[in-house]
């Protein structure tokens, strides 16, 4: 059920990619997800994420789910 808390999940994909010197296109190729979808995730416009996508990204970037997604505090 969508709530106003939807927008509080921040995706750190940008930072993780920068740390690894990897492009979004390359990640999309390795993960098997379209660049459009990864861009949606990177820009915090995603409202849901499949476990399979999450696992694949974490596998490629060698990180934990918590490194990729963080919940921002309520304002």
């Amino acid at each position: 059920m969508p709530t106003e808390d939807d927008g509080r999940v921040h995706c750190r994909l940008d930072e993780l990619l920068a740390e690894r010197g990897m492009t979004l296109a390359r990640l999309a190729e390795l993960v098997g997800v379209t660049v459009v979808n990864l861009s949606v995730l990177k820009n915090d416009r995603a409202r849901a994420i499949r476990f399979s996508t999450l696992t694949a990204i974490c596998d490629v970037l060698q990180c934990e789910v918590g490194d990729l997604l963080v919940v921002t505090p309520r304002q």
Binding site: A46, A48, R50
Partner: peptide, 14 residues
Amino acid sequence: RRGARLERDTEGLV
């Protein structure tokens, strides 16, 4: 109506 609901649910799904 169920289709519309499913469409809404998958909106923004990656």
